[in-house]
Design a protein around this nucleic acid. Structure first.
Lengths: 246, 246
DNA sequence: CGCAATCATATGTCAGACGTTTAATTGTCT
DNA sequence: AGACAATTAAACGTCTGACATATGATTGCG
């Protein structure tokens, strides 16, 4: 763990970086206990609050966890996929909402990625994944469903499709792309006919995955992508028309 | 911004969550200035150090930035793709190294995702992207190159391929998958013949992208994926053999 | 030997203070 | 009156010292 320059600003950021680098390089293995706050303060020649700010930065990234008590302290945290999902989704959602990413761009990315894992899903799908996909498709056909609930189910369906690939790295990377789309999807109003067609495509996808027919799954995903884009176009066009009226 | 329960533990985490939720919900728009630390301390009825710890957590996620001086304070930060790349790569790298993700799994995910954006890259590639790909392929053929430098160039080549798709969301999602592979790739020793074959495939990919031949690009990527897996298998097999000797 | 009380350690929080940065205000000179 | 310099005020960054609380280890007693 290195020293900081005599620059007396951003000390907590510098300390956080030093510890982070040590973790990334492997110098601090998982579950290793860091020195106590008082010891770190002495090592870096800063006060305890400054050290604490640095540790909180790392805790925010799930790089460390802290325990109180006699044998407590800060420990290098094993970063789990489940923990990373949340951060990934938060970041992706904010990226899309804060950068005026168009529906078309986000949608294109999402379906490109999903189609990438469809062949793997077809090859490896388990009964569990299929059951989830069927259940969500069925939920989507219920009459009183709000648009928001419909979208949530849509996300669940696609997550099951992705998880069926049996590759946690893929699932992790796609979690952001799929979930971050939800706020954008929520802007769309789905008519009964729209839903019918989407559900039909979902069912077709589930059928193809069950039959391990990769090409069929890909084709249906492509159709779903095109149809989703089409629906979004309509929404945008109608909104533009309304804006002109005013 | 909501109050905290009377639970006097994890106050800074609770405050951070309250502010984070406000940002995500849009209640706090981009570039909005948060109340000063003293005001926040009063509002939440905690001390200033506690507020500061909360703000540092948010700063670690690039959700806010702070400025010193008379008109300073904490401002809601516009999360940019470039900022998010770094976090994505750090998280992905740690996920792979801390969870004993096999080379095969990571490699499969990476190439599946890359093949997903190859058609888009073929359609939209610019002269810039092509030039980068060619330059990296050429760099890889230089004689004295270390294995590490070879891997770094490999990453740069593939990033250019991904960026050529012209979709920032895709680039962001793939940044993690591609860059996180580098430490794993660094474990491989590339013989001159290995390199030759990889460079040939890189060149073939660049050719296909230039010719906007999506199918050809996909085929070469599939070959590269298979070959990379094969090389890794060899390394693993040799390592296992050595382990048996001992 | 087992259980309870005590202790030591480390994090969580608080209060008050000082230094530094930065922009706005004020004041003075031309 | 206008331009430039000095002052002021607001806010973050840091430090010191202290107390509260949680928790494992130690000690002491029955």
């Amino acid at each position: 763990m290195k020293i900081d320059p005599a620059n007396p600003a951003d000390l907590s950021a510098q300390i956080a970086k030093a510890i982070r680098d040590a973790i990334i390089s492997g110098a601090l293995p998982v579950d290793e206990r860091l020195p106590s706050e008082a010891e770190l303060a002495e090592q870096f020649d800063v006060s305890r609050p400054t050290v604490r700010e640095a540790l909180k930065r790392l805790a925010a990234q799930s790089l460390i966890r802290t325990q109180r008590g006699a044998t407590g302290g800060a420990f290098v945290n094993r970063l789990r996929f489940e923990d990373a999902y949340g951060q990934q989704i938060t970041t992706s959602t904010l990226l899309l909402s804060m950068n005026d990413v168009s529906f078309a761009t986000a949608c294109e990315a999402r379906y490109a990625l999903e189609r990438a894992c469809a062949p793997l899903s077809a090859a490896r799908r388990t009964a569990d994944h299929l059951a989830t996909m069927r259940a969500e498709a069925h939920r989507q056909s219920q009459p009183g469903l709000t648009d928001e609930a419909f979208c949530a189910s849509d996300v669940a369906f696609h997550r099951a499709l992705v998880d069926a690939a049996g590759n946690p790295v893929l699932s992790y990377q796609l979690a952001g792309a799929v979930e971050a789309m939800q706020p954008l999807m929520n802007m769309i109003t789905f008519s009964a006919r729209d839903r019918e067609r989407i559900i039909a495509l979902h069912t077709a996808i589930a059928d193809a995955i069950e039959a391990q027919d990769s090409a069929q799954a890909d084709e249906n995903l492509a159709n779903l992508a095109a149809y989703t884009q089409e629906l979004a176009q309509d929404v945008i066009a109608k909104r533009a028309a309304k804006a002109r009226e005013k």
